[in-house]
Design a protein around this nucleic acid. Structure first.
Lengths: 239, 239
DNA sequence: CGCATTCTTGACTTACATCAAAAGTAGTGG
DNA sequence: CCACTACTTTTGATGTAAGTCAAGAATGCG
């Protein structure tokens, strides 16, 4: 149960021992990857998927003029390119924001899971559907929320997701992203991010020093962000 | 094979007769829904999924102040809330933009498919993963593309998707959305949409009269949009 | 210590929003 | 078939959130 993916899955539904073993058995090998490295390249044709065991990665699309849009952030236990199992050709890039420990899972073994473990298959499917729900929520931020509300929303999301895998202590967590990265997530310029982080700090709802964020007033922060955690599906259900 | 979902699946991988029958057998009943009606409400707990047989629907999130963000548009053959099969509680709303013919598919029958037809399960899974890819592409539009490029990108996407289910004749298709809807898709105001539709018309790459769009210069339109169709996975592969 | 990022702030510009109102289009019913 | 209403499209005038350019300060790293 050191495997954070198992923690993550067990947050959504009960897992049998057999299913836990099936997940462990799917892993072919473990690798370390340095910060800044590209884990998956857009256009690549893959025969394995990557499971993030520890670290932060970003799922992004890069435009011709060099600007980029980050579509989601991933943390311990996220099956970051489970997509490639059915997509075959990747439509986006995945980069490591920090040093990462990853597990390589051959598509052949995932196929076996779909043939033998329908319930586990549904839970993995759920994982990709939650990713889509996160994209939708980000779309709302970029399209309709103010810069300040978008930042607040991101902090609420990361707090809950990190909490779910045990990476929060006393309302405090590490978010190793630069303000340039934040701009690429929220569709904003660096300067505008900087000014709105400042405004958010001035509310006193959070303390944000370096890469450490501490939430001081969850109620008012989530109110400001109009945050509703439903999309993260953080409840145990028979699925 | 009247079922447009089967056309859509067959565009991505070969389907056996048994699988085709399994899809047909999953349908419990067919309903008609009037334009403007809400098909699925945010927060609803469902025990069936909806397959769109004919019509246009929008997947959207509604904010407190009444503004909304549309996260994707759906057409004939889209399994519009297959998500709910694993999510259980919906995080967004689905509205009918036109009159729609829909099929009701009980979750019980989908569960049976996951137990008996692993390959068909992977194809359905692929459907939800393509939805996520569409969200990502829209995120790029809203976050990083100009209003004009975003509009052009949307037209390219809808052209290819409608083409894939046989709803295009000679570069021409019907897109029954108002400029207010377009604003909600691209995170823009009605006025700004109107001005950019005008600019796009002036390029001569398209003709857009009422709800009918005709593409006159695909190369330059897709160039303007920086459109890459990879994300739609419109190729047959063993999945 | 020196170099490279990242953060911060100021000055100025621009894409897009808001407000307002006219003109076009479509559906309804008498 | 026309009159009525409701919605949609279009345009102008003006305001504002966010972008760009630039440069100094802080931070971190070899």
């Amino acid at each position: 149960m050191s495997q954070p993916l198992l923690i993550k899955l067990a947050r959504r539904d009960e897992l049998s021992d057999e299913e836990r073993q099936a997940v462990e058995a799917a892993i072919a090998k473990i690798d370390m990857v340095a910060a800044g490295r590209e884990l998956v390249a857009e256009g690549a044709r893959l025969n394995h998927s990557i499971l993030l065991i520890e670290g932060f990665t970003a799922r992004c699309k890069i435009l011709r003029d060099g600007t980029r849009q980050i579509a989601s952030l991933h943390i311990d236990g996220d099956f970051i390119d489970l997509h490639s199992f059915v997509l075959k050709v990747m439509d986006h890039t995945i980069v490591a924001l920090t040093q990462c420990r990853i597990a390589i899972v051959p598509h052949e073994r995932l196929k076996l899971i779909t043939e033998r473990y329908p319930h586990l298959t549904r839970l993995l499917w759920l994982n990709t559907v939650i990713d889509a729900a996160i994209h939708r929520e980000w779309l709302v931020s970029v399209g309709r929320r103010s810069a300040q509300a978008s930042l607040a929303h991101l902090l609420c999301e990361m707090y809950l997701r990190l909490h779910a895998v045990g990476k929060v202590t006393e309302w405090s967590f590490v978010l190793p992203v630069t303000q340039a990265d934040l701009g690429d997530m929220l569709g904003l310029s660096i300067v505008h991010v900087n000014r709105n982080v400042k405004k958010l700090r001035e509310t006193g709802f959070i303390v944000w020093e370096g890469s450490r964020v501490t939430i001081r007033d969850w109620d008012r922060l989530s109110e400001l962000a109009e945050f509703d955690p439903t999309y993260l599906s953080l409840n145990v259900e028979a699925r």
